[in-house]
Write a protein that binds this DNA or RNA. Structure first.
Length: 267
DNA sequence: TTCCAGGGATATA
DNA sequence: TATATCCATGGA
């Protein structure tokens, strides 16, 4: 499925759809220049390009990105499992091996606090400016707690500045994030939602994109518009989909979300 | 120029 | 518990 060398990972393209994986909205720290993606996560960096049937991930952090892309998971088996749900077929066929990433926990918390009522280009810009304050490395809770709310305002966080600052302080001063890691999924969500700026949707994104809790189904505005039945509430929709897709709910959600993004682009 | 964005907090009934 | 309103900003 993949092999590692010093400075690079080579993956079968059938096992990693780079475009879908990076552009499906789970990650904000990437850019694409002439078919080459530059990805940053934590303090790590990689250049990624697809040639023929192979994807090359050039990085000094080989072990980090093997885990980041969860390369030991057989995503095509996941797609086969999901293909028994007829309503997912067009979404599954719209891309190759879209993989759910394993991103750093605190970085994902702050990134999705920033994502609230915001658009992806601006989310990316804000996160880039935040990291640029720290030599292009995503800051620790302590580093953000040492900033001022005004400094967060200055990089365009808007009304989220106070949430980011307060959440960073809590993460710096308590063991909340360790408790989140140790907790089972529903309790982990409740713990995350004690952070200001974190509601159900942000908590679900954090659990899915950082902790690999594949049984959650984040319900955002697009999912709500696309999938709600009748007068179904957001909570009812989330429960229905989590029950239907079980341990594959997160993957089902990502394929549906990415497919809806493709359709939106075309219109 | 206007609209709106991978929502959440708060007030009100 | 359920619904309405406000929130800063800038990309499109």
């Amino acid at each position: 499925m993949y092999k590692t060398e010093a400075g690079s990972i080579v993956v079968d393209a059938a096992n990693l759809d780079v475009k879908a994986t990076l552009e499906c909205g789970q990650l904000f720290r990437f850019e694409k220049i002439d078919e080459v993606y530059t990805v940053k996560s934590g303090a790590h960096k990689a250049k990624i390009y697809t040639v023929g049937n192979y994807v090359t991930i050039e990085t000094a952090s080989v072990d980090y990105f093997v885990n980041f892309f969860n390369l030991d998971r057989d995503v095509n088996r996941t797609k086969r499992e999901l293909s028994r749900f007829p309503e997912l077929c067009s979404a599954l066929d719209s891309c190759g091996a879209l993989r759910i990433l394993r991103q750093p926990l605190f970085e994902t918390v702050i990134s999705f606090i920033i994502s609230a009522n915001n658009n992806i280009p601006r989310i990316k810009n804000i996160i880039n400016r935040l990291c640029s304050l720290f030599d292009d490395v995503f800051p620790t809770p302590e580093q953000i707690a040492d900033l001022s709310v005004r400094q967060l305002d200055a990089i365009g966080c808007g009304y989220r500045s106070q949430y980011i600052y307060d959440s960073a302080r809590i993460c710096a001063e308590t063991d909340l994030l360790n408790r989140v890691c140790a907790a089972k999924t529903p309790d982990a969500g409740k713990l995350l939602m004690t952070l200001p700026g974190v509601g159900q949707k942000v908590a679900d994104c954090v659990m899915l994109f950082a902790l690999g809790r594949l049984d959650v189904f984040p319900v955002d505005t697009w999912i709500l518009r696309t999938l709600r039945q009748g007068m179904e509430t957001e909570v009812q929709l989330r429960n229905r989909l989590m029950t239907r897709y079980g341990d594959y709910a997160g993957y089902a959600q990502q394929y549906l979300y990415y497919y809806s993004a493709i359709l939106r682009e075309k219109s």
